[in-house]
Design a protein around this nucleic acid. Structure first.
Length: 169
DNA sequence: ACCCCGATCGTA
DNA sequence: ACGATCGGGGTT
């Protein structure tokens, strides 16, 4: 009944994964929510991707196999949650920017910092294998894929010309 | 040891 | 429009 997304779902071109993640259910501990907004960060030639500055302790997980979490701290206050994509050795990930919680209130967590703060996601959640972890994974609700638009990515100073942000409409 | 900067967010 | 706040990573 879980329909957990397999590694093959993540081990694909990042733009495809970013779009196909829309409408999927993210499960983290006791939380569940529908993904409503994503951004793609693709390889060393994408200047907005952390991996453009090479392999460092922080970006190591992005160089590893697909289907792992990549969590980093930003502005000294917030964390951002990503899922690693593509083949091992190709550093890329999808940033999760929006989540509609599957609660009676259906709270919409819009913004990567607020999303992590609400769910309690920190660097302790970096490098988790979403294919095998007990309480952190993605689920396919088997509903029709939602319609979406693409826009430039938010909050970056380089790579702004690439329309690699995807938002459910 | 030092310095700069950032895939954000709330307030003004 | 701007400040909060601090770790990562490059430089000295």
């Amino acid at each position: 009944m879980t329909h957990r997304l397999p590694r093959s779902f993540f081990e694909k071109p990042t733009l495809n994964v970013a779009q196909e993640l829309l409408g999927k259910v993210m499960v983290f501990q006791n939380h569940q929510g529908i993904i409503t907004e994503t951004e793609a960060y693709i390889g060393i030639d994408d200047p907005a991707c952390h991996a453009a500055r090479g392999l460092t302790p922080r970006t190591q997980v992005m160089f590893g196999p697909a289907g792992y979490s990549y969590v980093y701290m930003i502005y000294g206050m917030y964390h951002c949650l990503n899922f690693v994509t593509e083949a091992e050795g190709f550093p890329a990930a999808v940033l999760i920017r929006g989540l509609k919680l599957l609660t009676p209130l259906q709270t919409h967590l819009n913004g990567p910092g607020k999303l992590c703060r609400h769910l309690g996601i920190t660097k302790a959640e970096n490098g988790i294998d979403l294919i095998t972890d007990e309480t952190f994974y993605l689920r396919d609700p088997k509903t029709p894929p939602p319609s979406f638009i693409s826009t430039p990515r938010i909050g970056i100073k380089v790579g702004v010309e690439k329309p690699w942000r995807f938002v459910v409409v």
